[in-house]
Amino acid sequence: MTELVGSERDLAFFDAARSADVVNARMGSDISPRLGEVMAIVVNHLHAAVKEAGLTSEEWMAAIEFLTRTGQMCSDWRQEFILLSDVLGVSMLVDAINHYRPEGSTENTVLGPFYVPGAPCYDNGANICLDGKGEPLVVRGRVTDIEGNPVPGAIVDVWATNDDGFYDVQQKGIQPDHNLRGVLTTGSGGEYWFRTVKPRFYSIPDDGTVGKLLASLGRHPYRAAHLHFMVKAPGYDTVVTHIFTPDCPFLSEDAVFGVKNSLIAEFRPIDDPIEIETLGFTSPSWKVDWDFVLSRTEDVRRIDN
């Protein structure tokens, strides 16, 4: 048996006063330096929080049961841990730290738990609304660089809820597959456009642990009305963002803190019958013009504390 000396002996056995130091001292010397750095910070803050809150054994067990149930809620199409990260503002914070772009660039917001890769590819002008519900909307604009030059061949991936406030993956067998999802490619002038429906506010899934947490905190589960976008092009930082309607009652209290002032768009009504017919709509409709401004990958940096 190896005899412990000095600081080794001090940290060999649990001591409440130095609990984080005792735990962190157990890490091996040949682990990933970054893992060691992150875990030491997590342990320090976790132990400090437990001490500051003076948690009881019952409260800590309730926290463990909450995390267990959160994991049990996860499936191929529902990620309750992403939802938890979102409602605590952590998703927005991690994104902000890692995507500090030059002024004038389109800002990011949360990816959300309902992004699905592999959506159908459409030609510009396509209608991605497959269930026929909602107020028709045309979205058009350009993808440019920070100097205003067009970015041809950029990929514009869009997804949204239907007029009932659900994503297609939440209503398998009710909504058509890939309803209100599509992938477009910008033209030679960086232009894109598609037809969809005007977004409406909706509740995030509140039948699980995250919904119960929000209720216990006196918070509502509603997201401000929005369209999701992911815009990417070689050499540019990928933009994951939304555009929001300006008339939504939950604009200033979005459940996942996703709203930024620069992402609030102008939705204008289309009343001209000729324009409505030209767009392939049969009822009064809406339009929004929205440009995405991409930053070169090398111009994006992290915010260090």
Rank of each mutant, 00 (worst) to 15 (best):
P221K: 01
G153D: 13
G148I: 15
S188P: 02
F201C: 12
A49K: 07
T297A: 09
M27S: 08
H220F: 07
H226N: 15
G235C: 08
A12H: 05
N179R: 06
D206N: 15
G280Y: 14
S283D: 11
F13S: 15
G71D: 12
S188R: 08
D291N: 15
G118L: 12
E80Q: 04
D123C: 08
S57C: 00
K287N: 11
V90S: 06
A40T: 15
N305F: 10
V87K: 06
F201W: 11
P152Y: 10
N108V: 05
V138F: 04
I41R: 10
Y167P: 03
V22G: 03
V300D: 02
H220I: 14
T144S: 13
I174N: 03
F201Q: 11
G211N: 11
G125I: 14
W60H: 10
T109C: 13
I146M: 07
D164S: 00
G189Q: 12
I276Q: 01
L35I: 08
V169L: 05
P176A: 14
C74N: 10
T282L: 03
T186E: 00
V22P: 00
A53T: 00
E147V: 12
D237I: 04
S262K: 08
P150E: 15
L130Y: 09
V42K: 02
L294N: 07
A255M: 05
P136K: 09
A215C: 12
F114V: 08
R181W: 06
I303F: 03
D291M: 10
G125A: 12
V139Y: 01
N162Q: 04
E277W: 02
H228P: 07
D10H: 06
V300P: 01
Y236L: 08
L93S: 13
E266G: 03
I276F: 00
G280L: 15
D164I: 00
G173M: 05
C121K: 13
V151L: 14
Y192Q: 14
T241N: 10
R9F: 02
E135V: 01
M39V: 14
V43H: 01
C248A: 12
G235S: 10
F201E: 09
I155M: 02
W77H: 13
A25L: 01
F194K: 04
A20T: 01
D163Y: 06
V210I: 11
P113E: 14
T68A: 06
S75C: 07
D157H: 12
P246M: 05
P246W: 02
C121D: 13
T2H: 03
T144A: 09
F166V: 15
R26T: 15
P205V: 12
M1H: 06
E3G: 04
K133C: 04
H242C: 15
D291G: 07
F114S: 08
D206K: 11
M230Y: 02
G211P: 09
M39D: 01
L55W: 07
A49H: 07
T144Q: 13
T196D: 11
V256M: 06
D163V: 01
C248N: 13
